[in-house]
Amino acid sequence: MFMGEYQHSIDDKGRIIIPVKFRDLLGTSFVVTRGLDQCLFAYPKEEWAVMEQKLKSLSLMKSDARAFTRFFFSGATECEWDKQGRVNLPGNLREYAKLEKDCIVLGVSNRMEIWSKNMWNEYFQQSEQTFNDIAEKLVDLNFDL
């Protein structure tokens, strides 16, 4: 399981070092794509296959399903580590997530997320204010913390 929060930076060539324990979970080859909330999602190949199957099951007759599938797959790229444990993030993905220098790498259950530090801080502050409300809604869905 991916969990934890780490601060890293991207170099001038678009490379970022990922925490060792996340590298072990991602394997030698993994998939990075546009995530929700303007961050990047990174999946081990096995988890990517699960996501692929779920998205394939959506109806092509629904415009929302087509739009989301395009969004998710068009940004996807297969990545590998270099000898220093860095991964090179493509320019289009760095631009989407506004990744310039300081980044936050998060573990979120079955995936890793990469955020711009500024975007993460903004998101976290907004979410922190509504965290109790969100927890109450989850309880209403029979999810007990």
Rank of each mutant, 00 (worst) to 15 (best):
M1V: 11
F2W: 03
F2G: 00
M3S: 11
Q7W: 04
H8P: 02
S9P: 02
S9R: 10
I10N: 03
I10T: 10
D11T: 09
D11W: 04
K13P: 06
K13Y: 07
G14D: 07
I18S: 02
I18H: 04
P19E: 06
P19R: 08
K21T: 05
K21S: 05
L25V: 03
L26Y: 00
L26K: 00
G27L: 06
G27M: 07
T28G: 06
T28S: 11
T28Y: 06
S29T: 15
S29G: 10
F30R: 04
V31D: 01
T33F: 08
T33A: 11
R34T: 07
R34S: 07
G35L: 12
L36Q: 14
D37A: 13
Q38W: 11
C39I: 10
C39R: 13
L40T: 06
F41E: 05
A42S: 06
P44W: 08
K45P: 00
K45W: 00
E47G: 02
W48I: 03
W48V: 05
A49L: 12
K54Y: 12
L55R: 07
K56D: 15
S57N: 15
L58N: 06
M61E: 15
K62F: 06
S63Q: 10
S63P: 04
S63C: 01
D64P: 02
D64H: 08
D64L: 10
D64Q: 14
A65D: 15
R66W: 10
R66D: 11
R66F: 10
R66K: 13
A67W: 13
F68C: 05
F68G: 02
T69L: 15
F73C: 02
F73Y: 09
F73I: 07
S74V: 05
S74M: 12
G75M: 05
G75W: 06
A76V: 02
A76S: 07
T77P: 00
T77Q: 11
T77S: 14
C79A: 09
E80D: 14
W81F: 14
W81G: 02
D82I: 07
Q84G: 08
G85W: 01
G85Q: 02
V87G: 03
N88R: 09
L89H: 01
L93M: 06
R94F: 01
E100P: 04
K101W: 03
K101S: 13
D102C: 04
D102E: 15
C103S: 11
I104F: 00
V105K: 03
V105M: 01
V105A: 01
G107L: 05
V108Q: 11
S109Q: 14
N110T: 13
N110D: 15
R111Y: 03
E113T: 04
W115A: 03
W115I: 09
S116F: 00
S116D: 02
K117H: 04
K117A: 09
N118C: 05
N121G: 09
N121K: 06
Q126R: 13
S127Y: 12
Q129L: 10
Q129F: 03
F131S: 13
N132Y: 05
D133F: 01
I134Q: 05
I134W: 12
A135H: 10
K137D: 15
L138V: 09
V139H: 11
D140G: 09
D140M: 04
L141Y: 14
N142S: 09
L145N: 06
